[in-house]
């Protein structure tokens, strides 16, 4: 059975978030959300531009994000003096790059189909 509904992807995340919160309170939830939005999501959006399967995209985003996003943050932090600001600047930058590539690809596809 193939799953097309995006909600099915969100339900496990929601369950995990609730579980983490139940064990470690608000601190656990903030950690989960921080890693999700700053580390996992930018990698996932970038990887959406590569032709791989969805399960692979999720796994690669997790594993590569764990180390390669901090590497990019490390480079950005050489320019921006605050680590905290560097984290969010990097995440936004990676998301923007990911979306930009995606839009360009879409444009290219539209042109081809015209």
């Amino acid at each position: 059975m193939k799953i097309k509904n995006i909600c099915v992807k969100c339900i496990p995340l929601l369950i995990i978030a609730i579980f983490v919160t139940s064990l470690f309170g608000f601190s656990g939830l903030k950690l989960f959300l921080g890693y999700f939005f700053a580390i996992f999501l930018p990698t996932y959006i970038l990887l959406r531009n590569i032709h791989i399967e969805e399960i692979e995209r999720i796994f690669f985003s997790f594993f590569m994000g764990l180390i390669l996003v901090p590497l990019v943050i490390w480079y950005i932090n050489r320019i921006i003096p605050s680590l905290r600001i560097s984290i969010w600047v990097t995440s936004i930058l990676l998301i923007v790059i990911g979306v930009y590539i995606s839009l360009n690809k879409q444009k290219g596809l539209n042109k081809k189909s015209d």
Binding site: S27, K30, G34, P70, L71, R84
Partner: peptide
Amino acid sequence: PPPYLMDYAFAQIFGGERIVP
């Protein structure tokens, strides 16, 4: 190299605590 060590810092920053996150 810094990336793995930085993950500890991120955990503190995101979680807002020094030890548990």
